[in-house]
Structure formats: C-alpha cells, structure tokens
C-alpha cells in the first residue's frame, strides 16, 4: 500500500532498519534514567554475589552447603556448640539460629546446612534458570513469530491456532503437567537425554510455557513491519526472501523483543521459584531460592529467616527487573503507549 515512488526506487537506501544511532540513543536515554541505573546496580550486586557462592562457602562459611551436617559442631564466640541441638522437651531438634557472623550467618536448616551459603548457590540456580529460560523463550518465539508472520497463509493460521490453544492453558497447570510428567524419567529425544535432576528440565519447561506470550506479539509486529514502505522498497529492488527476513524484518522486530526481555526474565524467575516451592522445579541436590523457601516452611515459626531471606531476594530481583524493564521500554521507544500484557486477544 502506500506511497507510489515518484523517484526511481533504486536511489532508496536498501536497509533503513534501526541504525547504530537508534541503539546509541537508547543506551544514552537508559543511562539518564536514574531508577533504571539504580536497579542495574542492584542486579549486578546480586549476580556477582551469587557467582561468588563457592568462594563464600569454602573461604568464609567453610562448609559444604549441600551435605547434611546433623552432628556437626561450630565454634561461636570461643565455645563449640552443636549445629543441631535437641529440644529440651526431648521432642525434635532445633538448628542453630542466625549468628550474623562468619559461620551460619543466617543459621542452619533442618539438615544442619549453612543457609546463607545455600541462598547464594540457590540464587545462582534461580538466575541461571530464569535467564536461560527467558533467552530460550525469546529465541523460539521470535523464530515462530517470524515464520508465522512472514510466510502467512496456512502456516500462519496453523501456528496461530496452536499458540492460541497453549495460551488457553493456565501457566501453572501447563508447567505442572509438564514437570510432573517429566520428573520421573526425564526426557529422551533420540540421542539427547535430559536427566530429571538437571537444571535443563525446569529451563525447558518454563521456556515452552511462555513461548505463546512472546510469539503472538512478535507475529503481530512482523505483520505490521511487512506493510512498511522500506520493506516494499526492498521488494521492489528485488531483494530475496532471506534478505527481506534478516535485513529488513528481523532488525525492526528485535527492539520489541528486547523491550520485553527483562520482564520475561522476571516472569521466568518467578515461575521457577513457584515450581521449586511446589517441589517440581529445581530438584535436590541442587537448590534454588524457591526450594529454600520450601525447606524453611517447617521451621517458619522457629527460624523464619530460612524462608524469609530467599523470598525477599526473589522479590528484590523481580522488582529490579521490572523497573529496568520499564526503563528499557522508555529508552527504546519513549512515545510508545504503556504496553500492557494483554493476556489473550479476544477470539474472533
């Protein structure tokens, strides 16, 4: 549609996708956004400290946070005390509380393991699962969205209906169905086998669950971009499909994927923590923030910090990602209306 070229089309630039300038401007805008910068600092601190988990465990806490330590002792203020002390009543036992010192900074869990060290390791798992799942989701969804929007016709219709059906599934039910069905024996596709205890399983499950939420807007964007004059100009110049797809359409769809990326990470981390809390996410011996909140449930009233601390970290991370996401959106597209997460377009 659009503008009939009054000049020979040959003089039109072939690839007017977002130039370097667009990205540089976005970064500059983001740098001026104080809230976004502050949360970026928070995120960097969280990521570095979880990466330093092994250092903390071996050098500072000097324990193995994955081995139960029921009969161990620890030296505090010059005296040796047991990590797990039997209750005076004779029933059960109480793990050591937070010392806020070198050993057992946040106390021990029921297995006598150092909670602070476990939280650092758990954070690493949570962040890995969240980021990897978000990357995978965006990758698959961009591929599907491009394929559907670019080919159109029957392919598009089939893909779109399929996404619609997965969309009708509540996220948690789909995730629960997938993880319970895969947890016993893992997944085996040809030569590729995924062990049920590996982090790969929650990553795959969470990534699959969120694909429709990203693929649908991407498809819409592809359809919109295809109508633009620069794409028509490229077609008029005889550009091949491959060139159209990778040089014209993809670069112009990418910003909208980047805009939602921090929010997708946040959602993935939140989903991982919820699944782990339900004991169907990250599996022991691995730990994540969600599994630690779950571990601490039984000692919530006696040793609340075991549950409270990792939950607080989840909340802070999600909040930081949400604020950063708002900042990235404003930076890339300041005039954009506030994009809403439209759960589901109304059926025809």
């Amino acid at each position: 549609m659009g503008v009939a070229p009054t000049e020979p089309a040959i003089d039109l630039p072939l690839s007017p996708g977002p130039s370097r300038g667009t990205w540089a401007t976005a970064v500059r805008r983001l740098r001026r956004d104080r809230a976004a910068m502050a949360t970026l600092v928070v995120l960097v601190v969280i990521v570095t400290s979880t990466l330093l988990a092994p250092v903390y465990a071996s050098r500072v806490a000097q324990t193995d946070p994955f081995r139960s330590n029921l009969s161990g002792t620890v030296e505090i203020d010059g005296s040796r005390v047991p990590v797990i002390r039997p209750n005076p009543s004779g029933l059960g036992s109480t793990p050591i509380g937070p010392t806020f010192g070198r050993h057992f900074f946040l106390g021990a869990d029921t297995q006598g393991r150092d909670v602070a060290a476990r939280i650092l390791y758990g954070g690493r798992a949570s962040l890995i699962v969240g980021v990897a799942a978000a990357l995978l989701t965006c990758l698959i969804a961009t591929g599907i969205g491009l394929l559907a929007g670019f080919t159109g016709g029957t392919t598009d219709a089939v893909i779109f209906r399929a996404l619609d059906i997965v969309w009708a599934f509540p996220i948690y039910l789909l995730a629960i169905a997938l993880s319970t069905s895969l947890l016993v024996q893992g997944l085996k596709i040809g030569p590729v086998a995924v062990d049920p205890n590996s982090l790969l399983l929650p990553i795959l499950i969470i990534a699959v669950v969120f694909v429709p939420y990203v693929a649908r807007p991407v498809r819409g964007e592809v359809l919109a971009v295809r109508q633009r004059e620069y794409v028509e100009a490229a077609i008029a110049q005889g550009a091949r499909r491959r060139r159209l797809l990778f040089k014209e359409v993809l670069p112009n769809v990418l910003p909208s994927v980047i805009v939602i990326f921090p929010l997708i990470i946040a959602t993935c981390i939140l989903t991982e923590s919820a699944l782990s809390f339900l004991s169907i996410g990250v599996q022991p011996p691995q730990a994540s923030w969600g599994t630690i909140v779950n571990d601490g449930q039984n000692q919530l009233y006696t040793r609340p910090l075991v549950s409270i601390a990792p939950g607080l970290l989840i909340a802070v991370t999600i909040l930081a990602l949400n604020v950063l996401g708002d900042g990235v959106r404003d930076a890339l597209d300041p005039r954009a209306k506030i994009r809403r997460r439209k759960r589901r377009a109304r059926d025809s």
Binding site: A266, S273, A274, V293, S307, I308, G311, A315, N322, V323
Partner: peptide
Amino acid sequence: ALIGLSIPVFWLGEVANLVTQQ
C-alpha cells in the same frame, strides 16, 4: 503497585502466616 507485582505470592503468604499466626 510495582512492589505488589513483584512479590512471590507464596512467600507473602508465609510472611502473613508468620505475623498473624505467631
């Protein structure tokens, strides 16, 4: 509102239990 949006609901429930039950 953003903080409310960021809190994991199971954790908020546990905090509520800790405060109101104990």
